[in-house]
Structure formats: C-alpha cells, structure tokens
C-alpha cells in the first residue's frame, strides 16, 4: 500500500491540518509516513498545499509528490493546478461546494463532497476540511477513521480542543458520503 496525497486549497481552509492529521493517524498505526508543505512566497499568496505519503511496507522515498495517487482539491485553482498530475486510476476528491467545474479526467475515481454546505449545516464553516477528510479516508481506507479521530487532540492546539466533537461529527458526515473503494493502483 502506497498512498501519495496532495491536499490543496485556499489558505484558511485547513489543508495543512488535514495533511497533519492524516500523517499523525498513519504514524499511530506504525506506518511509514511523511508530510511536507509547500513553502515560501506561495504560502503568502492565499493558496496552500501539502503532500502526505503513507506506505505500509517500505520506507517513504521522496516526500515530494509529483504523481499523486489522490488529489484533494478544496477549491478550483487546486483542481486546475494538480488534476493532470494524478496517476491513472487515482482518486480525486473535490470540494463540490466551491469547485464550479467538472473534472476533465475520465480515468480516475471522482468523489464530489459538498463540504462547505455540510459544514454550514453543522454550524461551523471551518470543519469543511474534516468533511472532506472523512470522505477520503472512508474511500481509500489508508488509515483507520479511529486513528484520525484519536489524533485530533494531538494535532489541534489545546484552545481548540472544545471543537473536537464538532470535528468528529464533520468527519463522520464526510465518511457517510463514500464507500470503501481502495486504490485501483497496483
């Protein structure tokens, strides 16, 4: 099992913490994992992305992902920038609340998640990232949902620990949108 994920969106959408949670969950499960952010001036430009590599069997080669097995696109620019990089058979998770175009690729698995709408229903727009993460984890099964939930208190700063139940709920709502369909990749 080798999952190479690019998570991308606007600054403030919580893409870094999504990757951090995913990486932390994988570490808890004893898997090999790396997380690396985009860094430098592009961080200031309002877009952000990070890459997470999870490998069950072998050590992580490069933390820099050039051929993602999964792309999580939280906004339109992220889809535009990274869609073509996805490996054939890879997974595209799009935030359908914000992305206003259809994906072009036909050789991939596509999961549309109305993340902002669901987060709105839950009363806090900031948990849209957890809705998407829930859907991704449910689809790929690269980590156990319990590992992600269990990582929340490590990853979120203490002054946000009161939001952990809400994050759990958002994660569960996202998970409910997707059934397990592990990688079509060998």
């Amino acid at each position: 099992m080798l999952e190479e994920v690019i998570i991308a969106g606007f600054g403030g959408q919580g893409v870094m913490v999504m990757g951090y949670l995913l990486a932390y969950a994988a570490m808890r499960e004893g898997k090999n994992v790396s997380w690396i952010p985009s860094y430098g001036p592009e961080m200031r430009g309002g877009t952000a992305n990070c890459s997470v590599v999870i490998s069950r069997d072998s050590e992580v080669a490069s933390p820099i992902v050039s051929e993602p097995t999964t792309l999580i696109a939280m906004n339109r620019p992220s889809l535009d920038k990274f869609e073509r990089m996805l490996v054939p058979g890879g997974l595209l998770v799009v935030n359908a609340s914000l992305v206003d175009r259809e994906p072009e690729r036909r050789d991939i698995d596509i999961l549309k998640v109305p993340a902002n709408d669901i987060a709105n229903e839950l009363g806090n727009m900031r948990v849209a990232n957890m809705v998407v993460l829930g859907a991704f984890v449910a689809r790929r099964g690269c980590v156990e949902p319990a590992s992600v939930i269990g990582s929340l208190e490590k990853v979120l700063p203490p002054h946000h620990h009161d939001l952990i139940p809400l994050n759990e709920e958002a994660f569960a709502r996202g998970a409910g949108l997707a059934s397990l369909r592990p990688s079509m990749q060998p």
Partner: peptide, 14 residues
C-alpha cells in the same frame, strides 16, 4: 541504520 524507521506511538511527528 537505514532510512526512516518504522513509526510507533512513542514517536512524534516533527
């Protein structure tokens, strides 16, 4: 030793 070692719960992500 080798490259990145197997993770376990007593490790931290840094």
């Amino acid at each position: 030793g080798g490259l990145a070692n197997k993770a376990s719960t007593d490790k931290v992500l840094m």
